[in-house]
Simulated assay, not measured.
Amino acid sequence: MKTKEKLISRKLTPDESARMVETIYGCKWSLTVYQLLDSGVNRPGEMVRSVDGLTTKVLNACLRKNTEFGILDRISYNEVPPRVEYVVTPFGTKFLRILDDIEKLQREIEGEG
């Protein structure tokens, strides 16, 4: 008896990318940080001063998480006083496009309801 070769394998969830999206959306401040970076605010102190309710501790945790995922890159300048800036990486640019698409999908869903 001849067995047929399976043409389609079972589709698995993209665990790592799904966790990344969940973590970013779960972080209350990540989307705000992306808006700040997009508007040219890339220094942590400036970010804290620009947004009511954002603390240095919470911002640092948010920036660290985004840096670990490879969405943001931390640039340290060897100056006195020390200066640190954050920029979106090429991978981060792709990731932010996905977040924009999710936001568009949400608006469409809300429009249907």
Rank of each mutant, 00 (worst) to 15 (best):
T55L: 05
E112L: 15
K4W: 01
L96K: 00
Q35A: 10
G113T: 11
G40W: 00
N42D: 08
I71E: 01
F69P: 01
L96E: 00
I75S: 03
L63V: 15
Q35T: 08
F95W: 00
Y86S: 09
D38C: 12
P14F: 10
R64K: 13
T89V: 10
E108V: 14
K6W: 08
T32G: 10
E103C: 04
L7Y: 05
L105S: 07
Y25A: 06
L37G: 00
T13A: 15
D15H: 12
Q106T: 08
G111V: 08
P14C: 08
T55A: 09
S30Q: 03
I109P: 02
P44W: 11
T89R: 11
V21N: 02
M1Q: 15
G26E: 02
V84E: 09
K6T: 13
N66A: 12
V33N: 09
D15I: 14
E22S: 15
E5V: 14
D101K: 07
V33C: 11
G70V: 13
L37N: 00
R64M: 13
I75A: 11
F69H: 04
P90R: 06
K65I: 12
V21H: 04
S30K: 07
D52N: 14
R43H: 05
F95T: 01
K2S: 09
K4F: 03
L72H: 10
G26S: 05
N42Q: 10
E5G: 08
T13D: 09
F95H: 00
D73G: 13
S30W: 03
N60L: 15
E46F: 05
T3S: 10
L96W: 00
P90K: 04
A18N: 04
R83Q: 07
V51A: 07
L7P: 03
N66R: 07
C27N: 14
T93A: 14
D52C: 10
A61P: 01
W29S: 08
L37A: 01
A61M: 09
K2P: 15
L63S: 09
S50P: 01
Q35I: 12
L31I: 12
P82D: 02
G70P: 01
D100Q: 07
A61L: 10
R83L: 11
E79Q: 10
V41I: 15
R74G: 05
E16C: 14
G111L: 12
Q35S: 14
P14Y: 05
P90L: 11
M47E: 04
L12D: 05
T32W: 05
K4D: 02
D100G: 07
K57C: 10
E46N: 11
I102P: 02
I71N: 03
E108W: 01
L12I: 12
F69W: 03
Y25T: 05
Y25L: 15
G40S: 03
Y86Q: 03
T55H: 09
Y86V: 11
I109E: 03
R10K: 07
M20H: 07
W29C: 05
N66M: 15
N42Y: 03
Y86M: 10
L12C: 11
E85N: 10
T55F: 06
R19E: 13
V84T: 13
S76H: 11
L7N: 07
